[in-house]
């Protein structure tokens, strides 16, 4: 794999001595390419023969306290507007790369846009925002999960610090499960400098059951998650 642009290699310390201490107790050399003897297959594929992938996604999202609003490309900005009703522009942060002109116009008019040139100010804005809007790269039907590849001008904080996380999900990006997502990510390993530094699988709002095993929704991350599912074909 090629390194990222201008990247300095990191140091590796004490590896040789560390490994030499037990090298004689494990296998030597490069292992042969391994194939799992048993290939586990999720039941999700059977389910997808009977139900549409978006229905399965929405059903599973509901169980993890994420509300899904369905719309189409045409009406997307109206839906976003209704979610953001009565929330001022400086309370809404977005980090979206899109060639949908209408959406681009709306975000520039109604939201503060994540702007790498502004550096750490972006994080401060995120911490003070009520709503963070992101555009997902992949979504998983099996678990109602959205996948955000945080790279370049897609900030990690947008989906994390605001109280409400709104995710735009193009229907075409829903895949059955984790397996397909890993394949997509793995595909980018080979595309040299484009391997994302951070990939987040996000499944609903943050939660905890650390006090008496009572589920509390909303701990460190967002208190609320809204999925906007867009029919993009």
């Amino acid at each position: 794999m090629k390194a990222r642009k201008n990247m300095k290699k990191g140091n590796v310390q004490n590896r040789e001595h560390f490994l030499s201490r037990f090298a004689d107790r494990v296998q030597e050399g490069v292992p042969a390419k391994r194939e799992n003897k048993v290939k586990p297959i999720s039941s999700i594929y059977n389910l997808l023969e009977k139900e549409s992938i978006e229905d399965v996604f929405i059903g599973n999202a509901r169980t993890i306290h994420a509300e899904t609003i369905r719309t189409n490309t045409e009406n997307l900005t109206e839906v976003l507007e209704s979610i953001c009703e009565n929330v001022a522009k400086d309370q809404i942060l977005s980090s979206i790369q899109t060639d949908n002109e209408k959406l681009e116009n709306w975000t520039s008019k109604r939201t503060v846009q994540w702007t790498p040139q502004d550096g750490n100010q972006n994080v401060i804005t995120a911490a003070q925002s009520r709503i963070g809007i992101t555009y997902c790269d992949i979504a998983l039907a099996e678990s109602g999960t959205v996948v955000l590849m945080n790279e370049q001008n897609k900030g990690r904080s947008v989906s994390l610090l605001p109280e409400v996380h709104v995710v735009i999900i193009p229907k075409s990006r829903i895949v059955p499960r984790l397996k397909e997502a890993m394949e997509i990510i793995n595909g980018r390993v080979n595309r040299a400098d484009s391997f994302p530094t951070c990939v987040n699988f996000i499944t609903g709002p943050s939660n905890s059951a650390d006090i008496e095993f009572v589920l509390v929704v909303g701990v460190h991350g967002p208190l609320e998650t809204i999925y906007v599912l867009v029919e993009d074909e």
Binding site: R4, K5, N6, G10, N60, I64, W114, P116, D118, G119, N120, N122, V123, L140, E142, S143, T145, N150, E151, Q152, N153, G155, R156, S157, L178, I185, F195, P196, T197, C198, V199, N200, F201, I202, T203, G204, P205, S206, N207, A209, G221
Partner: peptide, 24 residues
């Protein structure tokens, strides 16, 4: 661990942030 198909957050980190990135 908890009977969930996946937890709320599964984060994959690939090195430090890139130069042009803000957070991380």
């Amino acid at each position: 661990a908890v009977g969930q198909p996946i937890s709320s957050y599964v984060t994959l980190l690939n090195g430090p942030k890139a130069e042009e990135e803000v957070d991380g």
